[in-house]
Amino acid sequence: MPVKTSTHFGKARSASRRAVEDPAWVRFILIGLALGFATVFLLLPLVNVLVQAFSKGLKPFWGALSDPDTLSAIRLTLIAAAISVPINLVFGIAASWAISKFEFRGKSFLITLIDLPFSISPVVSGLMFILLFGAQGLFGPLLEAHDFQIIFALPGIVLATLFVTFPFIARELIPIMQAEGVEQEQAALTLGANGWQTFWHVTLPSVKWGLLYGVILCNARAMGEFGAVSVVSGNITGLTDTIPLRVEKLYNEYNGQAAFAVASLLALLALATLALKTALEMKIEHDHAQALTSPHAPAHEHQAPERQ
């Protein structure tokens, strides 16, 4: 970590190393360009959502949010996330345990398979579930016979959400668990702990922040997913609309202010996610730094341990 010796505008962060310092005009132009780009592409879109949401004042804002169809969309989004995130949590823990604590053939292939949903278009993933469970789908007749609906209903939305958020938690946990190694777990075993006790008392506490980080990202994506859910939900107002679908519907109805009001909920979710994420990163960094330097280590390091 470069030492911060000055907060002077545009100063190189690793001051005192003159050879790696760029001329002031270069720094000025680069920072200016970067700030300009960040303003247009990052800051303005965010501010715009919030400003447009309140463009007609507080009352229409509340009006848009308390609309029964919007409330039902919020409810559906919460339910879908409440089902899919825990399932992904179980999967993420199982996958990272197997992948990071054991050696087996085909490990990197397995990781690639877990990554697949990242690179598949959400629309294509939605389509896959229609082909599986839709009326014309592979299991369509079977589901119809048992009067069980997946597509254009909650189960379909959950499945599509599961698919698009599938890699999130596993991908966060695998590198952390790999870095922790297996010695602490083995130490627990030599002390008589069984698998569950080892996992619960040793493994889980050491990855808890990373796990929370993964859950937060997974949740943000689960609540905000648009493409895949849009394909499987059927867009039945008041029934199978999630918040993002509700935004689209309001927008298509030329109700821009209401669309922005509902969208501001998701923007706030994104901001909360970023805030939590940043806090967790600082927490993880702090823990890491603490583990490296031991500020409270007593001075009598080289003293022989005396016994009575």
């Binding site: 990052l42 669309a259 940043t278």
Partner: peptide, 17 residues
Amino acid sequence: ALVDFPFALPTAVAGLT
């Protein structure tokens, strides 16, 4: 921190704004 904003923001909202 804001660099992650597009990642955290639902795409529908991004498109809208």
